[in-house]
Amino acid sequence: MRYRIVAAAFLVLAAAVLQSTVMGYLEVFSVRPNILITLAVVIALLRGTVESAIMGAVLGLTMDILMGKTLGWYALLLFLLSILISMVNEKLYREKLLVLIGFGFLSTVAVETLFILVIFLFRGYRHIPYLFTMVVLPEALLNSILILPLFKPIGKVYNILDTLDRKRNRLSS
């Protein structure tokens, strides 16, 4: 359990640092990929409901903190998204390329569309379709590419953590 918490904290901090620094250099047409959303999707595809929900909420809250605006919207959206994905993940061929790309794309579209609706609609902003086509769709495309190199390494990290937990349980019993 201790290793799991340390690994989760490391993942969140690494994602936060990368998102606020390096990701700015990967911008395509002024749109950058979002490693925090992608990571939440990867974890939700790999893990159970509780672990996914916690990680989703923490990654979302980290995104909220980094943005420096209202706290909670990304936390709520990634929390709910992680629960939904983790509930169906065992029924999927999650290592298939198309499944990963599809989940990366659709999850980003869902999260960012709901985010712009919450943030922009309440302010009477009229250009939602423009933002959807010029920001949400390109970001979803970038995230669906970013999910590919992330999936296997994160899966390996969790495999190592599972092995460590099994060893500890065996020793204690």
């Binding site: 606020s20 620094t21 995104m63 980094l66 943030i119 970001e139």
Partner: peptide, 14 residues
């Protein structure tokens, strides 16, 4: 400036 805005919606930096 040590960090730029992490998302695609705002123009906030650290």
């Amino acid at each position: 400036i040590i960090a730029k805005d992490p998302g695609n919606w705002f123009e906030v930096f650290t």
